[in-house]
Computed example of a mutant assay.
Amino acid sequence: MKKFCYLVLAMLPLTAFAYPIDVTKQLNGMSIDYDATDTDSDIASIQVNNYGTVDATCKVVFTNGPEAPRTRKIEVPAGKHSFATAKFTRTIIKMRINLTCSPK
């Protein structure tokens, strides 16, 4: 039983922990959907899907606590999707993403 407990404790660092992601959106009446993911411990990404008939211009602001926010501007054609990613120098504990989209 002791060997089993040691084995479990030894494997504990191999488990991956995901950080929470909060997304605040301002879509201005557009048919936009998103999927935010934790790519790595210091990289966050978001996929923005445009289901409307009008092209969209989106501004994505990634915020990770004390570090400076990372701003990305992406264009999402009608019926397509685009990605935005941000890399930070520290490990992400909680990611806050502000997504603002408007018609092009």
Rank of each mutant, 00 (worst) to 15 (best):
S45M: 10
A44S: 15
V48C: 03
Q26N: 14
N49V: 11
V23W: 04
S45Y: 02
V23G: 02
M30V: 04
A56T: 03
T57H: 12
T63S: 15
N49K: 13
A36W: 02
T39M: 11
G65F: 03
D42E: 00
N64C: 09
T24N: 11
R72L: 11
R70F: 12
K73A: 13
D33M: 14
A44W: 03
K59F: 04
N49R: 10
Q47N: 11
V54T: 15
T37Q: 12
S31M: 10
D55T: 08
I21R: 00
I32W: 00
N50M: 06
C58Y: 07
Q26V: 06
T24V: 10
A68E: 15
R72F: 06
E67M: 08
R70M: 10
Q26S: 14
T37R: 11
S41Q: 11
C58H: 04
G29D: 05
K25N: 05
T39W: 08
Q26T: 13
Y34L: 05
D42P: 00
N49W: 07
V61Q: 12
D38Y: 01
I32Q: 02
D55K: 05
K59R: 15
S41M: 08
T37D: 12
D38S: 12
S41G: 07
V23P: 05
G65K: 12
A56Y: 01
A68N: 12
D35N: 13
V54D: 10
F62L: 10
N49A: 08
I46A: 06
I32H: 02
D35Y: 08
S45L: 03
Q26I: 01
Y51E: 01
P66A: 11
M30Y: 06
I74N: 05
Y51K: 14
Y34A: 08
I43G: 00
D55I: 01
N28K: 12
P69F: 06
T37H: 07
N50H: 07
D38N: 14
D42A: 01
G29E: 05
K73Y: 09
D55M: 02
T57L: 10
A36D: 06
Q47W: 08
V54H: 08
G65Y: 09
N64G: 05
G65C: 01
E75M: 02
S41C: 00
V60K: 02
T57R: 14
A44Q: 07
I32A: 01
I43K: 11
T63N: 10
D22P: 00
D55S: 10
A36L: 05
D33V: 10
I21E: 02
A44H: 02
V54L: 09
D40E: 15
A56I: 03
M30L: 15
D40P: 03
V54N: 09
M30F: 06
R70T: 13
T39Y: 11
V23K: 04
N64T: 11
P66V: 09
P66C: 05
E67I: 04
I46Q: 04
V48A: 02
I32M: 01
I32Y: 04
P69W: 04
I21A: 01
T53L: 08
Y34P: 00
F62Y: 15
T37V: 13
N28Q: 15
I46H: 04
E67D: 14
D38C: 08
